[in-house]
Simulated scan of single mutants.
Amino acid sequence: MTETAFATDEALKLHIAHWQRELGSVKRLAENTLEAYSRDLGQFLNFLAGHTGGTVTIATLSALRGADIRAFMAVRREESLGSRSLARVLSALKSFFKFLERDGVMATEALNVIRTPKIPKSLPKALTVSEAKQTIATTAEMEERPWVAARDMAVLALCYGAGLRIAEALAVTRGDLEGNSIRVTGKGGKIRLVPLIDTVRTMIETYLGLCPFKLWPDDPLFRGVKGGVLSPRLIQMRVVQLRSALGLPPSATPHALRHSFATHLLGRGGDLRAIQELLGHASLSTTQIYTAVDTDRLLESYRKAHPRA
């Protein structure tokens, strides 16, 4: 860990060193996180030294007010620090002050009145229609065993063609197939019935015809090469191969296919409530994030195509 300078007296530096050791050896924080926490605390203490006009001591920290911490956060915000980084800064400070309180060194209520910055939801990164189709179609070229290739294509087809989470797709049983629909168990055990388009249904039927294992109604539909439950890691690794072969960005994951399903439906005029049901979202607000995704895509197309853009 790189050494961080602290504008403090020797007594406080000793407490900081003990806190750092605890983060590393007891809480086992990653090296990068430990460095970030130490850097955040160092920046706060240096700010405090200038703010109060002297070396920071335990007495300085004991006299802290919420306004002092807000002033520091405002300075960091002016330095273009984002909400996610500010939330980490606050987490680092709370960790240190809780350490001091637990060791009986001091206690303060200053941090309790500071709200964690609201972190905006990151927008899903959808593939284009062409990229999504290529991802599924190219799977057959990545695998010599026909039944394994058919299996992986069917799993990815469920992610893109039916909007399933990877865990949902791998939990599907033979008995969950109901004609042109599939019964899906989502988060919280909530069950939904999702229609299957012809392409997806055909891929599943192809897999069923090639699968070398007996598939009972209550058993998982997708099997590993030894007959056990298929691991999501194997599908994720398959998509990594496909990313390399097709030159897709790191954001191209099995879950990105689910995002693409929702984004493409919305772009083709799909009803938001219907998409909510298909995805298994408990709240419409969760589904509404795709309206922003589609707007971004439209604006990007506009800027590229419009002669005055």
Rank of each mutant, 00 (worst) to 15 (best):
G161I: 12
I275L: 04
F6R: 02
A74K: 10
E141C: 02
P212V: 14
T199Y: 11
L193K: 12
E141Y: 02
S283H: 14
A150Q: 04
K98T: 14
N32C: 04
V26I: 14
C211L: 10
R28E: 13
Y160P: 00
L23H: 02
L90H: 03
E178W: 01
H18Y: 01
G66P: 00
E277N: 08
A292S: 15
L34G: 15
L215G: 10
A157V: 04
L23V: 05
A5W: 07
L14A: 15
D218G: 12
L196I: 14
D218L: 11
S181T: 15
L272D: 03
S85D: 06
G104N: 06
V194A: 12
R145Q: 15
I235E: 00
L215E: 07
R201G: 09
A110I: 08
A256N: 01
T52C: 09
D68M: 06
E78L: 07
L41R: 09
A309I: 09
M1H: 06
I197A: 15
T199H: 05
V194T: 14
V89S: 03
A256I: 03
H18W: 00
K190L: 11
R201M: 12
N180S: 14
L34H: 13
L215A: 14
V89E: 01
S301P: 01
L221H: 08
R102K: 14
R165M: 07
T173Y: 08
C159M: 14
L170G: 11
G280K: 01
V105E: 04
T199S: 13
S260I: 10
L48H: 06
T173E: 06
E31C: 04
A17C: 02
P120Q: 07
D271M: 10
L221C: 09
S283P: 00
